[in-house]
Design a protein around this nucleic acid. Structure first.
Lengths: 147, 147
DNA sequence: TAATTTTGTATCGTGAACGATATAAATATA
DNA sequence: TATATTTATATCGTTCACGATACAAAATTA
């Protein structure tokens, strides 16, 4: 029995579980907007800056285009984004929000922060703990990205 | 532009990204053992205690049986576990390690901790930071599990 | 400018996750 | 003990992730 191979000693398992469970907590809230969690991430990217090529969106989310392309195709079917070939560089697909996609921002603002606050209100972590957690996660993310 | 909807302010996005990137870092190492990351998690559960029903494995990993069942079926095809109906309760499938599955423990011990140490050696986090991070993640996990 | 390389996106196949549903076995209840 | 309920697992459909590959457009080089 190797200590290093104990599930309870794995940071990665905690990250994996925490990530899945938080995403699960988002799901019922996002369902009201008829979107999934990865689609919500794409929307946040576009709400910050509308009209971006697929590559920029993928890079911002640390995903590959072969993940993002079908995601965007589904979002286009839902009528929340449109994709148009760039005239400057015909290889690029420029992704833009539709009116419906833009309208979701207000709806998200009204439901998501409050809803997630409710989900996590019994969590003993304080404001500073969350800030600290964010810093540590950023360290790990940067380390692996630059490896 | 709502601060609450900025990608950079999302704890969840950090968890999601950190989890994916760490799993990616595991992948080349696990490939030497011809297993995936979720399969490695199942193996850790079985190395701790061989011969468990599907439910117990799923519960330990905070997964549903509809995720674990196909995972186990693939592992059975690979010849690292076997599933046998319990004679006490014929509904239960008891999952056990094969000789090959048991042998993987030694191989995992020899390659994974060293390999991951190498991957993360440039990470500025100290031993105590990792311990702290683990505690905070456990808080979040427990909060959501008990909601 | 012709040939080569790089870049941006898409397609394909596999393995998760997970909601919804199905089914048989075990347990509880009438 | 017959019926209803619960439990353990499996199946199905959809949506990610992601490695491998394909292909056209752009950039580079010969």
């Amino acid at each position: 029995m190797y200590e290093e191979l104990r599930l309870d000693n794995q940071l990665c398992f905690r990250l994996y579980t925490a990530s899945r469970l938080i995403t699960q907590a988002y799901t019922p809230i996002l369902k009201q907007l008829n979107i999934t969690y990865p689609q919500y991430l794409v929307l946040m990217v576009l709400w910050e800056q509308d009209g971006q090529p697929v590559n920029d969106i993928a890079h911002r989310l640390c995903l590959e285009t072969n993940t993002v392309t079908p995601l965007l195709q589904r979002m286009e079917k839902l009528g929340i984004v449109v994709r148009k070939r760039s005239k400057v560089d015909k290889r690029q697909q420029i992704v833009s929000l539709t009116r419906k996609g833009k309208a979701l921002e207000q709806q998200a603002f009204e439901t998501i922060p409050a809803g997630m606050g409710e989900e996590l209100k019994t969590c003993p972590l304080k404001q500073e703990d969350y800030a600290h957690l964010a810093e540590e996660l950023d360290s790990i993310i940067e380390t692996i990205k630059n490896r």
